[in-house]
Design a protein around this nucleic acid. Structure first.
Lengths: 228, 228
DNA sequence: TGAAAACCTGACCATATGGTCAATTTTTTA
DNA sequence: TAAAAAATTGACCATATGGTCAGGTTTTCA
């Protein structure tokens, strides 16, 4: 339940010795992979143990239960997720700020697809673990940034767009490339998404959203043919 | 694997008597709910049976295995999903055609959130059952519609947008309201999404996408205050 | 260097759950 | 209406899996 806010108490490196820190990290990394592929119920401790290169009993030495591992993975992910809104503030240039946010989110998605998938899975199942976080920290953060966007709109610096729905859209547009990679690959006729694909996707989202917000896109689409 | 293309052979009503059709429908409906909430692994036959109002053994009379129930649910969903691209054809007006598609997808999402979630879950886990469908039927359908959009762009009837990525974006923008409803509710500070919320979401997506495609939005945002 | 703390792990258990089956009842149909 | 077909179901089983634990090994540190 209390998944521990980003700087919470679940996986804070501090307690335990050298070995503990190393092995916990290995377990977390393995667990992220496995949870991403199989979901909470589908993941087995045996599988995680195998991926981490440890006997199963050892997992239970570091994490009492599967749920504890899961919570630690989520806490780890939330820390990643929370940063990127810095540049969205009243003084900033709307186009630059939004572009930076989109690029950052897209990079995060490209570099941590498994994290995105674990998060997506948690949401899909009603966010039993991180519901509180969503309704508190995240809601307030979004309300804050929404006010900035409202101000930009009021000042005529961008087209009128519902700011909260805009955030929802940005999350959807970016994370879809990790969460639903299979579908994306299928329609793009690719085996998997490489850097070139992500560059193209980023250009597309920037193009669509910036123009959609009345902020002429500076990036002409279709840089390279992309044949990864 | 072969999940049966929309008019496939898994749940096609044809074989079996009156009772069979009724009970299969009840099971499918119950299963959709349960799979949406818990995913494939998380769902139990006992739970589905309970929701369907039948003893567990009876499920196994109609569907041999859990996987079979799951495949039937997916086949049922694919049939829903496949229709809505009709109006996207060379002769149509881009703005009207896209607006219609967005509205249709949004309605589908609002009316069948559980279906959307089962589908999302399947994708999230690598689409083991519907992968073939995605790589064949869906890919071809999208390639077809993408050509139409290319033609519109070439004719200067809309801004240059990567057509395949545009479809990916449209799916993401609409289905996020069902798949990640928990997160949406959290940041909107709602208990659940009502018709008014969906109206507002639709207006937002239309606004963003149409302007993003260089097709001035005819719908001014923020109709009613929406307090459901 | 020795003892305390941390770490490791194979064997084991309890439970949940998908699936089977044979005996029975209900429905269909000729 | 009789017999064949379809449908029903409680009891039961095999397996997978999360979790325990006692006894052993390694690391730390005064």
């Amino acid at each position: 339940m209390t998944v521990a806010t980003p700087r919470g108490d679940v996986d804070t490196p501090a307690r335990g010795g050298r070995i503990r820190r190393q092995h916990e990290a290995a377990i977390l990394a393995a667990a992220e992979q496995v949870f991403a592929r199989a979901g909470f119920q589908g993941a087995t401790m045996a599988e995680i143990a195998l991926a981490a290169g440890l006997p199963k009993s050892n997992l239970h030495y570091y994490f009492g239960t599967k749920a504890e591992v899961y919570r630690a993975v989520l806490a780890h992910i939330l820390r990643l997720w929370l940063a990127e809104t810095d540049r969205i503030n009243a003084d900033a240039d709307p186009r630059e700020a939004l572009a930076h946010y989109i690029e950052a989110k897209m990079r995060l998605t490209a570099e941590h697809p498994d994290a995105s998938r674990v998060f997506a899975n948690e949401l899909l199942h009603g966010a039993p673990e991180i519901g509180d976080y969503l309704r508190n920290e995240l809601r307030l953060l979004v309300a804050d940034k929404a006010a900035v966007i409202e101000a930009w709109i009021a000042a005529g610096r961008m087209a009128p767009v519902d700011p909260v729905h805009l955030f929802i859209s940005l999350w959807a547009l970016t994370q879809t490339y990790a969460d639903f990679e299979t579908q994306v690959c299928a329609v793009l006729n690719r085996r998997s998404l490489g850097p070139a694909d992500y560059r193209r996707a980023t250009a597309h989202v920037l193009n669509l959203v910036l123009r959609g917000c009345g902020l002429a896109s500076p990036i002409p689409e279709g840089e390279s043919p992309c044949s990864t």
